[in-house]
Design a protein around this nucleic acid. Sequence first.
RNA 1: GCCAGGAUGGCCGAAUCUGGUAAGGCGCACGCCUGGAAAGCGUGUUCCCGUUCGGGAUUCUGGGUUCAAAUCCCAGUCCUGGCGCCA
Length: 451
Amino acid sequence: MLSRRFVRENPDAVREGLALRHNDDVDVDEILELDAEWRELKAEGDDLRHERNEISDRIGELKQAGREEKAQEAIERSAELKDEIDRVEERAARLDDELHERLLEVPNVPHEDVPPGEDEPDNVEVRREFFDDHDAPADPVPHYDLGEDLNILSFERGAKVAGGGFYFLQGDGARLEHALIQFMLDVHREQGYTDVFPPIPVDSEAMTGTGQLPKFEDDMYAIEGEDLWLCPTAEVPVTNMYSDEILLDDDLPIKHQAYTPNFRREAGEHGTETRGIVRVHQFNKVELVNFVRPEDSYDRLEALVSEATAVLDRLELPYRVVTLCGGDLTFASAKTYDLEVWAPADDMGYGPAEGGRWLEVSSASNFEAYQARRAGLRYRPERHESAESLHTLNASGLALPRVLVAIMEYYQNDDGTITVPEPLRPYMDGQAVIEGHDPVGEAAVGAGERE
RNA sequence: GCCAGGAUGGCCGAAUCUGGUAAGGCGCACGCCUGGAAAGCGUGUUCCCGUUCGGGAUUCUGGGUUCAAAUCCCAGUCCUGGCGCCA
């Protein structure tokens, strides 16, 4: 969250940031008024308390000296003050709570590099890789059809046990998923990342620390009867793992990677564009989380993008990097780059001239001190006596299902098989081609092909 | 789940029984001292308000008793140990 002091001293910067985001839910003037009123009441309450503290000290002295009558007078005065303090502070506390709640709903102020714009089409392309002589099949089958043809994907069975938006990976499909996870973890370990495996349920405090709560409650799965939510992204447990701690200057930068399943309700997000495994309720992801000194965070953001794209580079999948415009920027982020992989099968609106479409597989964001302030993440800078907020960043490295989509569509062969990208083969006992599996059960027998 | 013990500053730790200035140590920063350093001495090292200076809050959290709570009472959270259950 933004600090009270920052909002008080830079209201115009906050207003401009909101305008760039096309956010008109936040009323800065109202917040400033609340703040001014709260400060006035706090000063009043502090003065009253000061007076009462002095009287209280005197009572002790008078009692010691045996001057009961004087002491009794002071006790009466103290009781009067107590009532007055209760009145003033009750009002102050109400304003304080209100102010806190309002501030939790103020998004981060975008960095000056963030381009104007309302939505996806306004994002600015930074670079594009592997397009010059790409090797996509002429007429690729969409992953959802191919996956069921090969019996490596089953949506019906997923829906049977958990409902729509869940799916089974089967046989080589599941193997490819495992291979990708291990491959990504190995790539990032080479880049200096330390592995962590976090708890999957997270509490409300953690969700508030990274900014998912209070605004985005509807996107999360809640666990009934507990103050717990299913992890929507490893960003939540990993960023909060050092909450309310003070790290040493020597500890920084910290680079953690975490593989976790992620759960999102995605209410109202179903349609042709999300068919298959492009937008599902549960997906695996390797997440990169950085804790850095404030002065290093923008250099780190650039490096983070390279660390995430290294996976696509090694897989030789066509992709591009875009800078998100103000309107597309997420709540807690000051600047974000999206990594979009090319899925050639479905020619949809959001895609390159070659056809197909862009699929976001990672968002690399600098949150500056926004999350650190909410989560209580601090460090002690060298040659400073007191602790201050550090900066946090994260990027997916990468979200699995969409990478799987890209592989299935980009590396599919004319005979309906899929070539396993070279770097993944060591993780699949050297297997080079996914040929699919025979269907299981009576449905297979009655499938019609035989005379 | 049951029983017992515990939670004090960046860290360690005293004060809790017996309510009245949160001791001391370590680390770190600044200053003094020094040719320079070490040692030593002093100041500082959480949050909030206010211009220096000051004031307020803060002993896990929330209530209560009291003129006054780290201290007494109630509830909760977490940690440790023991028992139980369990992949």
